[in-house]
Design a protein around this nucleic acid. Structure first.
Lengths: 169, 169
DNA sequence: TAAGATTGATACATCAATCTTA
DNA sequence: TAAGATTGATGTATCAATCTTA
């Protein structure tokens, strides 16, 4: 059960919530605003300059690092932290642009491999310098090396709890 | 000019990009993954439990804190870090649910005020305990007070460069 | 005319339902 | 039947174009 019992008036008896104190609230607002602003800016710059958003770029980069530039869609979903459905739609769009193709997995027809085409690889190479420039400008070069390391560490802490450890059979 | 000069082969002469070193790459990937995973999880939990996403919640919270629960749409856009268009669409959806209404600004008809209705305020009050629970579970209670403060600080550093300081006339 | 706001077209994410192969 | 993948419907964000008021 996730819900407290319903009351006669149709309201729900909630345990008194532990509200945030002033400092927690400040930190949360800064953090929350950062996620909105930064991810919007990353996407906008990538879209404007390269016609690809961050997520698409990551997926293509993930494919490019796999043997034969080929990966099962489900694996790709795990690697890019997206849902299977999201990846299926995304691969379809990449196919329309000639950057990827699908093929059934030879060993087991239930699986589908996504393959980065030569055109897709060329696109990735072309976009890569701009991508690193954007990431540097917005994140890497804004922080000292220590701060960047700490940001990575805090990010890991925030993700560990949510992510299923990638069970790789 | 934002682009280096074109070459005869139609390619573009790029200055050699400063690629990330191993440690920078690790930090960037952790951070990037965190933004994808955490914002998805925040939205999913808010949507599932309260039928409202984080952004909508923030907008309603922002309205609720304004005098008469009323704020110009443009101000609301600034306060929530969204575009004017995004806010206009969002207010329309809140109107459909009876949680907000629009009215032309009395002093200057070019402006539009958004008003949080009593129903909207009731919805906000009802959603608030769950929202703080989610935020605690996913962020606040995962970190030590020092870590949380540092996360807020780093977040500020990352957004300062992007955000226009809110010029409030 | 300019600033604020709205709109419509398009793109993408999510969810639930369905399909496919073993 | 179960796991992986696909699909279609719906909701939301973005962009460019338009509208409105001063």
């Amino acid at each position: 059960m996730d819900e407290p019992p319903a009351r006669q008036d149709g309201q729900v008896a909630q345990p008194a919530p532990r509200w945030l104190d002033a400092e927690q609230l400040r930190a949360w607002r800064s953090f929350s605003a950062m996620m909105v602003i930064l991810s919007a800016e990353l996407d906008a710059q990538m879209q404007r300059h390269e016609g690809v958003n961050e997520f698409e770029y990551n997926v293509m980069a993930g494919l490019s690092e796999a043997p034969d530039r080929t990966l099962r869609i489900g694996r790709l979903a795990l690697a890019s932290n997206g849902s299977l459905s999201r990846l299926s739609h995304l691969i379809k769009r990449l196919e329309l642009r000639g950057w990827a193709r699908r093929e059934p997995c030879p060993e087991d027809g239930r699986y589908t491999n996504a393959v980065l085409t030569d055109e897709g690889y060329a696109k990735l190479l072309q976009a890569a310098p701009r991508q690193v420039t954007i990431v540097r400008e917005l994140v890497i070069d804004v922080l000292t090396p220590d701060q960047l390391r700490e940001l990575g560490h805090l990010s890991d802490l925030l993700t560990e709890r949510i992510q299923d450890g990638p069970a790789v059979p």
